[in-house]
């Protein structure tokens, strides 16, 4: 177990102006008792809506923020107390923060990082070559970072995070704001990192395509609490009961009719098409009940896709 967190919390006291002079202080629980374990070699998708506490969690795991309560250990180290030791063993990309030297060519950042992390020349060259090949860095290695496109910069950031051979890679929204091609490149690259299995990866993202392509395990958080921890399939299974039935009827839907185990979510087409969302009951029973109540012309059962599942998950928990 390379990462473990027990009852991890972070509270921020924020003060807000009320009226002209008075300030009102209140406490925001950004992370509210997160338990998390990650095994070596895993790729974990840490997902949740905006403001759920993803970045705050990552900052506590990397030693940037001191937790308000709870225990954390990453690579067997307490992140804040052993910050510099830990820094050599992890790689971090925060989508909005750069690890590169803004005014210098990308390749100079890489060579500075080699010295900062004291990477032997051979290891550095080998890793750099691997990243260059996979991410196509050749075209812009000599360009000052401030002149790179976001997609190019992100490829540089990923390389910078990997050059010292970290055991754990923390990626906070690495695909946010990227163009389609760059997103694809980053995703393929991460899939490759995962396949090699040398690094444990914790990835936060909003991008459902990232999740479907990369994350076997998902931890979903909302309001600072873990609301799901399991595979994508388990997430589906948990919400499979939320499939929908769309029925076309011979006669208009009788107003006020209810069925056990399902909720009417839409009545359309002159009340001759009704959408029912299953709520806990098996589809068969609801269909049977429906057939008894009305005269069916056509019927289909629709599986939720990941997008719906996650959207619903967010909605339910909030």
């Amino acid at each position: 177990m390379i990462i473990s967190a027990r009852g991890l919390r972070k509270e921020f006291t924020v003060s807000r102006k009320v009226g002209r002079f008075r300030r009102e202080r209140h406490v925001v629980s950004a992370v509210d008792g997160v338990d998390l374990t990650v095994e070596r070699g895993e790729l974990l998708g840490y997902i949740g809506p905006n403001g759920a506490g993803k970045s705050t969690t990552l900052k506590m795991l990397t030693g940037v923020l001191t937790p308000s309560a709870g225990e954390v250990s990453v690579c067997g180290l307490e992140p804040v107390a052993k910050r510099t030791t830990l820094a050599r063993r992890i790689g971090v990309v925060f989508g909005q923060r750069s690890q590169l030297w803004w005014d210098l060519p990308l390749e100079e950042s890489f060579s500075l990082l080699r010295h900062i992390y004291r990477v032997p020349e051979g290891d550095h060259a080998a890793r750099l070559k691997q990243c260059t090949d996979l991410l196509g860095l050749d075209e812009f290695q000599r360009t000052p970072v401030r002149q790179l496109s976001l997609g190019q910069r992100m490829r540089g950031e990923l390389t910078a995070a990997l050059l010292h051979g970290p055991e754990v890679l923390f990626l906070d929204e690495p695909t946010i704001g990227l163009d389609v091609l760059s997103k694809q490149a980053v995703r393929t690259f991460l899939a490759d990192v995962d396949k090699r299995g040398d690094n444990t990866v914790v990835l936060t993202t909003h991008d459902l395509a990232d999740i479907e392509k990369l994350c076997r395990r998902l931890v979903v958080i909302d309001h600072g609490r873990v609301v799901h921890d399991g595979t994508l399939d388990e997430l589906h299974a948990r919400y499979r009961s939320r499939r929908t039935i769309v029925a076309d009827l011979d006669n208009p839907w009788p107003e006020g009719l209810t069925l056990p185990g399902a909720v009417v979510t839409a009545v359309e087409a002159d009340a001759r098409r009704v959408t029912l969302t299953l709520d806990g009951m098996a589809a068969g029973e609801v269909v049977a009940a429906l057939a008894q109540a009305v005269s069916l012309r056509d019927l289909s059962v629709q599986e939720p896709d990941i997008e719906d599942v996650v959207a619903r998950l967010y909605r339910d928990e909030s």
Binding site: T62, G63, R83, T84, V92, Q96, Q99, Y117
Partner: peptide
């Protein structure tokens, strides 16, 4: 700006 984050992520003082 939160840029101080990046200083804390390096193995230096």
């Amino acid at each position: 700006s939160g840029l101080f984050d990046s200083l804390l992520l390096r193995p230096l003082s």
